[in-house]
Design a protein around this nucleic acid. Sequence first.
DNA 1: CCCGCTACTCCGTGATACTATGTACCGGTA
DNA 2: TACCGGTACATAGTATCACGGAGTAGCGGG
Lengths: 109, 109
Amino acid sequence: MGKQMTEMLKGTLEGIVLAILSGRPAYGYEITTRLREMGFSDVAEGTVYALLVRIEQKGLVGVEKHPSEKGPPRKVYSLNAQGRADLEEFWRTWSFLTGRLEQLQQGGN
Amino acid sequence: MGKQMTEMLKGTLEGIVLAILSGRPAYGYEITTRLREMGFSDVAEGTVYALLVRIEQKGLVGVEKHPSEKGPPRKVYSLNAQGRADLEEFWRTWSFLTGRLEQLQQGGN
DNA sequence: CCCGCTACTCCGTGATACTATGTACCGGTA
DNA sequence: TACCGGTACATAGTATCACGGAGTAGCGGG
């Protein structure tokens, strides 16, 4: 995708990852793969790892190390209470935004 | 609104302004006011002016100076062909994103 | 023995919004 | 007159976030 998508993902990607984690715990490489499968084909790996560090430092997730059969140990992230609260707040902000945009798209300005 | 909104607006605000201009030409101060009325209560004035300079330099809009009865002359921006194309591209990117997010919100992950 | 996949990390860059501040024009009011 | 508030635009500095690119490391297969 283009530059527009890159900019639009700012602030949204974090919510997307939180939403993914709300389903079940996951580790970085897995999350990157899932994002790619979803169609976010050029989300950079480094971006995802940096984001995970960020939400960990914000205290939105817990981390556990699990050995992998195929490489270095995985850092499995799981949403905690604060993370769930943050996700809800994200959805509120998101729906506010979609509401306004929908209005704009229908020529409602 | 909070910091989440600030981050989410990155990349979106430009589309929003283009959408506003697609209705009819407008000048900076007016756009800021309209954004506030829409609920984007803390979009900074400086942000809007910087954005307008940006889209002008990208060649998405035309500019005309009109005198004002109440202050300095207004710089009235109007969408040109390239701006309309950019706006359409914005809507495509936006609907891609909303599609994925909708899926995620319905626990579809 | 190297290649490719898995898995994580880090540094520098670019884009964007915010804060804060400044300039300037105008009308109303004390 | 002097000042204030609303109109209107501009800019310098800061923070955040995604990307590009490179590096480290474990593991299994040709």
